[in-house]
């Protein structure tokens, strides 16, 4: 297995983390995922955050897999 960590953003779904990583709370306490590959919620609606529980489908969460750009174009200076 490679020792590189990979984080994949899945379309309309979670961030999936593979490879060596440590997940912790803000005080440094470990959050044990209990599995090799984990899905981190990015819709905010999971009931087991930081993990995904599939709720993104119920709330029709939508996000691209690639980097998003929704910044509003700056108004031309007058």
């Amino acid at each position: 297995m490679s020792d590189e960590t990979r984080i994949t953003a899945y379309r309309d779904g979670p961030l999936v983390v593979r490879g060596p990583f440590r997940l912790e709370d803000q005080d440094g306490g470990e959050i044990d995922p209990g599995r090799e590959v984990v899905a981190l919620c990015r819709c905010g609606r999971s009931r087991i955050r930081p993990f995904c529980d599939g709720s993104h489908k119920l709330v029709r969460f939508s996000a691209p897999s690639t980097r998003e750009d929704r910044r509003i174009a700056a108004r031309p200076a007058d």
């Binding site: 899905a39 993990f51 599939g54």
Partner: peptide
């Protein structure tokens, strides 16, 4: 299964 399949779904479909 709630947790595991939230991972598996992505691996399985994509």
């Amino acid at each position: 299964h709630v947790e595991a399949d939230a991972v598996h779904e992505n691996l399985a479909t994509v």
